[in-house]
């Protein structure tokens, strides 16, 4: 099991999983909770801690879903996406405080 921490920037947003994102939601990858080999493969595709991930289109029923990360579109099954912990970027419009880009 490998846990990789990125330099988390927004402590106010709670950790959720990539599997919880809906279409159009963006989040920053915090850690990958997968065996080393699988985590490496994901990282090579751009899923490195600190990367911004946006949820895109999905197959009917929402699984698998396409994620926009590092200039590519990668489809993941929901059970894999659940192992990627993220902090949502700009979760609700209610927060009006300016954020770091």
């Amino acid at each position: 099991m490998l846990q990789l921490s990125g330099n988390s920037s927004q402590p106010e947003a709670p950790l959720t999983s990539l599997g919880d994102l809906r279409k159009g939601d963006a989040a920053v990858l915090h850690l990958i909770d997968l065996p080393m080999e699988d985590a490496r493969r994901l990282m090579e595709l751009g899923f490195v801690p600190g990367a911004t991930i946006t949820a895109g289109f999905s197959a009917p029923g929402g699984d698998p879903r396409v994620f926009q990360v590092d200039g590519s579109e990668i489809a993941l099954r929901r059970d894999t996406a659940r192992r990627l912990r993220v902090r949502e970027k700009a979760p609700r419009k209610v927060h009006t405080l300016p954020r770091k880009p």
């Binding site: 994901l42 990668i74 489809a75 993941l76 099954r77 059970d79 894999t80």
Partner: peptide, 9 residues
């Protein structure tokens, strides 16, 4: 074992 399904679009 369910290896992660990764498919680049």
């Amino acid at each position: 074992a369910q290896a992660p399904f990764l498919l680049e679009m």
